[in-house]
């Protein structure tokens, strides 16, 4: 299945986000080897050069590192993985609050609604 990509944002950014998500979600464990650029590009149904760019950017961020001949690996730096996980979480929360604010809720009301939903689900 091709990856689900939006059509108004840069493709390489979305590929980065998806791989980051997969790392955080544990699809790849710390220290795991990533599939080759070509295989990832095929899986996502995107241009291999675009996938290459996404991986280079991830490398620059430190989330993955490459070993000359043997390919790219996921970082084993747990602190970094944890930080990225928290960054993603705050991003989701920020977006949620934005949408709720658009619906006219105040922060306190939003918190109460979240509480209520949690109670209901119990």
């Amino acid at each position: 299945m091709p990856w689900d990509l939006d059509n108004d944002r840069p493709i390489y950014l979305q590929l980065m986000e998806r791989i980051q998500q997969d790392i955080i979600a544990g699809v790849y464990a710390p220290g795991d080897k990533l599939p080759s650029v070509r295989d990832l590009a095929l899986d996502a149904s995107v241009n291999p050069n675009t996938m290459q760019k996404a991986l280079s950017e991830l490398e620059r961020s430190g989330l993955v590192y490459s070993q000359r001949t043997s390919g790219r690996f996921i970082t084993e730096d747990e602190t970094m993985l944890k930080k990225i996980k928290l960054d993603l979480a705050s991003e989701h929360i920020r977006q949620f609050f934005e949408k709720m604010t658009l619906l006219g809720f105040k922060n306190q009301e939003i918190l109460e609604l979240v509480q209520e939903t949690l109670e209901e689900d119990k």
């Binding site: 390489y12 149904s45 675009t50 760019k53």
Partner: peptide
């Protein structure tokens, strides 16, 4: 998603020669 680059051709002339991601980054559209 498969393209690196696009060439727009209009009335026999090249009107655009750029990468897909440059279009998306600069114009925010596909």
């Amino acid at each position: 998603n498969v393209l690196d680059r696009v060439l727009f051709i209009q009335n026999g002339q090249l009107s655009l020669n750029t990468t897909v991601d440059e279009i998306r980054t600069n114009q925010g559209k596909s």
